[in-house]
Design a protein around this nucleic acid. Sequence first.
RNA 1: GCGGAGGGCCGGAUGGCCGCGGCAUCCCCCAAAGGGGUGACGAGGAAAGUCCGGACUCCACAAGACAACGGUGCCGGGUAACGCCCGGCUGGGGUAACCCAAGGGAAAGCGCCACAGAGAAGAAACCGCCCGUCGCACCUGCGGUUCGCCAAGGGAGACUGCGCACGGGUAAGGGUGAAACGGUGGGGUAAGAGCCCACCGCGGGACGGGCAACCGGACCGGCACGGCAAGCCCCACCGGGAGCAAUGCCAAAUAGGGACCGCGCGUGGGGACAGGUCGGGCAACCGAUACCGCCCGCAGGCACGUCUUGGCCCGGCGGUCCGGGUUGGCAGCUAGAGGGGCGUUGGCAACAACGUCUCAAGAGGAAUGGUCAUCCAACCCCGGAUCACGGUCCGGGGUGGACAGAAUCCGGCUUAUAGGCCCUCCGCGCGC
RNA 2: UGGGGUGUAGCCAAGUGGUAAGGCAUCGGUUUUUGGUACCGUGUACCGUAGGUUCGAAUCCUACCACCCCAG
Length: 140
Amino acid sequence: MTPPEAPRSDAGRMPPAVSSCPGVKASSKMSVLRKRSDFLAAARAQRQGTGSMMVQGRDRRDGDGAIRVGFTCSKKVGNAVARNRAKRRLRAVARELLAAEGKSGWDYVLIGRADETATRPFEALKRDLCYALRKLAGQG
RNA sequence: GCGGAGGGCCGGAUGGCCGCGGCAUCCCCCAAAGGGGUGACGAGGAAAGUCCGGACUCCACAAGACAACGGUGCCGGGUAACGCCCGGCUGGGGUAACCCAAGGGAAAGCGCCACAGAGAAGAAACCGCCCGUCGCACCUGCGGUUCGCCAAGGGAGACUGCGCACGGGUAAGGGUGAAACGGUGGGGUAAGAGCCCACCGCGGGACGGGCAACCGGACCGGCACGGCAAGCCCCACCGGGAGCAAUGCCAAAUAGGGACCGCGCGUGGGGACAGGUCGGGCAACCGAUACCGCCCGCAGGCACGUCUUGGCCCGGCGGUCCGGGUUGGCAGCUAGAGGGGCGUUGGCAACAACGUCUCAAGAGGAAUGGUCAUCCAACCCCGGAUCACGGUCCGGGGUGGACAGAAUCCGGCUUAUAGGCCCUCCGCGCGC
RNA sequence: UGGGGUGUAGCCAAGUGGUAAGGCAUCGGUUUUUGGUACCGUGUACCGUAGGUUCGAAUCCUACCACCCCAG
């Protein structure tokens, strides 16, 4: 099912250039995951790690074309301030890219990492998400 | 100028671009849902820890109780209340400003005080000191002898010395310990001792001051009453229990567990059917004149126009209650002991009263942001100037923002916190 | 939101006011040709942190820190 898994160090390597990830106006409505069962379902599906985040993706297969996304951070990220900041940056980067790069009908869950999610430059954060979305699309 | 003490305040600023939350309003729309536009508002001094106190809601009880358990603990005041705050007292620390204290009761009782030490709780008597007796030391000497001495018995006994000896006196000295039953000096004595005296300490205390804690204290007592209650405990005061995942309402959906009740007294006639009561079984009874449906009366019940079938067991259906159990929505949900400013009055103060102006997040996998630029602190580097060699000032460059995110609300406490600002006071030094 | 527990040597741990047990591990030695095993010996603790009560605290009290568990 999964193609030959890239070694762990691959996650830190430079993702595809930003120019290949043009920011396009949202074509479909993006809504937010709110139920625990949705998060658990996504966690069982495919995942792709990068230097600054972990991305989980799942094809809902319910006929609805909407892209849904959830954000979460474990306690390992830090205190409430650090967790909230990480989720806000993930939310900002998802809002810019997900409508264009995500596959319709999928659920995505973005998981923050300690330090990296909060401190990585915004452009690099965008490259990480773009890279992860393409890997997931390729796997699917 | 240096060092220190106390208190208060701030917690980066501005502007682009892209966004988020509920609210108000307008538009699209028959309406709802949904979408769009506009507007003001949108984290903290600790929002944190969840350590106290309340509001609020439900449960329990019926007065306010008692017991148990838990908490608080100098006195007075403030407060809705508090374990908080203010003022005072006492004790301790500091040259001082000031700081610290769970600070009631140890003559209600129980318990503990290791080791060391004579003795550790209604004191004790080891060494020592003193008195007396006896023995030895003096004289004599039965005897024995390793010839150094040992020694029964008798005498003298004033002084002195000695004793694993005995009987008393004593608690000054010694040493132990965290703590040893007043201290220092003098008198006194056989030696000593509050035995007596002076001062200090201690206990009681008329009376005076103070709301009180407490303070002062004539006078009296030769001195007793060790410490620990953050050991049990006693005393006084406070506390019914649970918590917004409380609680109330609405909708949908799953499983059909447990308990209880009901399935409705009848009666006469007509008429039809072959088996008969809600279903099954058993027993009984009846059966072509039974019996139900049906029709007509009587009586009774209530839902008022319908119902009214005998026994036992099992089941079924309906209802009520209890229990298990899934999900979503709405309310609770933010205007209240509310915060802030100014003023007046009372009070030393905490605070209170009144007047006036002003401010006001309500999320719910959880909004209050992302990004860029400029500036302001801070830190580092380089160059220059000055200097009391600690530093200060000017210019340029770089890094770059403490602790930390509302979750029903409020009053406190505690803890974290880069850096900065202000006020008052104390000590020392210098100048005028 | 409410409740409970733990913290002692590198690891596991006993100790409930009076010198901080024990085991494993480490290190040294004996035995063995060597290693292992066995035996003997040795060191290692500011008892989670900071205050307080007490003559004396791992132990009692208060505050804080970290971790774990339970209920709705």
